[in-house]
Design a protein around this nucleic acid. Structure first.
Lengths: 131, 131
DNA sequence: GTCCTTGCAAATAGTTTGCAAGCCG
DNA sequence: CGGCTTGCAAACTATTTGCAAGGAC
């Protein structure tokens, strides 16, 4: 984890991620940053996102749609994906409320279960009444 | 879910998946089928895998390494990925033993949580003593 | 001045698709 | 035969990388 030299492109990415709850893809981030820095390249966006993930400043996760999503909230938390509108929500359940499932998984398994990665799905508040 | 016309390529794919516990990628499947049918193309493998997933005969899932993996065991079950050797194992926990986490996730969330997708990780039986 | 960072373009990996020929029913 | 299936190659999507120029410290 090396120290990073300042760059306004990286700062713009962090600022953008800090003020959105959309869990955007790299491409969405690129589109948005381009409104302020029209010359930024997609490669730079990817490079900085990966650096920020390495530093633990942001989180990268996949919600099953093939492309990675980024979250400016680096505190561990669970995500919810709407089956209808595909929007991703943060769940504010306590992060250790699912710790016990590692034990359940480890029962009858001869290895050592240390953690899990879970995504919840269903209908979001907006879509719940429609479907 | 239309009825499929017989093809020996598809049968070879099903047979291969039925006798392995490796959770292979499309490419691994391709390599193996090619020993019997040297002319089979990767496109055919992908097309058939997707058809079989649609029919519910096999399962497709991602273990976070970017490429999809396939499982000839279509009964719902959880998977475990080893942090060291990256092998994927089936867990034989009862499938409904984690049903309750949907309720935990739904508490304090205004949408409707219907399910979840979970992968466990840690050290497998072989790697547990080494790391 | 050194070395990290950028923009650009080309490369890569995994997967999908168009098309003419082949095979199942 | 009609229409699903195949092999082949090209296309596509998401992401990474090489390189010379630019910027931070």
């Amino acid at each position: 984890m090396k120290t990073l030299k300042y760059s306004r492109q990286r700062e713009a990415i962090m600022n953008y991620l800090a003020q959105t709850k959309e869990h955007p893809t790299a491409d969405t981030i690129y589109m948005n940053i381009r409104e302020t820095y029209p010359n930024i390249s997609l490669g730079t966006v990817y490079r900085n996102l990966n650096l920020l993930v390495e530093q633990g400043e942001i989180i990268k996760f996949s919600c099953g749609d093939g492309c990675d999503r980024f979250d400016g909230n680096a505190d561990p938390h669970y995500h919810f994906v709407c089956k209808r509108c595909s929007k991703v929500y943060d769940l504010d359940m306590k992060i250790d409320s699912l710790n016990h499932i590692n034990l359940i998984a480890n029962a009858g398994f001869d290895g050592e279960v240390l953690g899990h990665s879970t995504i919840f799905y269903g209908y979001c508040p907006d879509c719940k009444t429609l479907s």
